[in-house]
């Protein structure tokens, strides 16, 4: 093959590298976003276990003894609190691990395709993989946008709890509401537009897949 062929091949390799670059950027974005949400959910799970277990224990103590028991028998209560705290931490960790396994399945395929394309683009093109990558990406993106709607509430709750612990509950409440409103506003402003655009892109992609074959 001549010089023209080399140029053509170079063009294809450049395009394939560009496709890999774009996909990688989006996969990193999705992974980072999911990691933040996962951390927030794990934190909420840990707090929920801590509050619920503490409430059950406190309820039991109050049903058996007077409220002064908490002050008088502080030393006895300490190990119980430690167990509850460790249990909460473990439940948070468990939630994080569980969510990671569940969410990773979706991203694993994309990461695998990108990795295989990255190796491929050095020697050959792997356009079959690129097609598959685009398809999966276009299916995943609307889901990411849809999930952002519920993320606002999660981040708001985390801000509320942290604010309440660091400052006071009213300040925590205020912080929670502000964070929730901020993320909700950010999402609402773009949600419908982004979603319809991505769905339209996916529809067009499917149409072009068919029309491409027909055009051959």
């Amino acid at each position: 093959m001549g010089e023209g062929w080399d140029e053509s091949k170079e063009e294809i390799l450049t395009a394939a590298a560009s496709i890999v670059g774009i996909s990688e950027k989006w996969v990193n974005y999705i992974a980072k976003r999911e990691r933040h949400v996962r951390l927030a959910q794990a934190f909420l799970a840990a707090v929920l276990v801590l509050v619920a277990s503490s409430a059950i224990i406190a309820g039991y103590i109050l049903s058996q003894y007077s409220p002064s028991y908490f002050v008088e028998e502080r030393a006895k209560l300490m190990p119980i609190f430690e167990v509850v705290a460790v249990g909460s931490l473990l439940s948070g960790l468990g939630t994080y691990m569980f969510l990671r396994t569940r969410q990773d399945i979706k991203l694993q395929e994309l990461t695998g395709l990108i990795a295989s394309m990255k190796t491929n683009t050095k020697e050959h093109n792997g356009i079959g993989n690129a097609l598959s990558l685009t398809d999966k990406m276009l299916s995943l993106m609307p889901e990411v946008v849809r999930n952002r709607n519920q993320d606002a509430l999660i981040f708001g709750l985390v801000a509320f709890i942290l604010g309440s612990v660091v400052a006071r509950p009213p300040i925590g409440f205020l912080a929670g509401v502000i964070v929730w409103l901020y993320f909700r506003h950010e999402t609402r402003q773009t949600h419908d537009r982004e979603l319809s655009r991505l769905e339209e892109q996916k529809r067009r992609f499917e149409e072009r897949k068919e029309s491409f074959v027909k055009s051959l």
Partner: peptide, 13 residues
């Protein structure tokens, strides 16, 4: 290849 690249470049959120 051009079409795939164009589609990928068109993904914006």
């Amino acid at each position: 290849v051009d079409w795939i690249k164009e589609t990928m470049e068109g993904i914006v959120i």
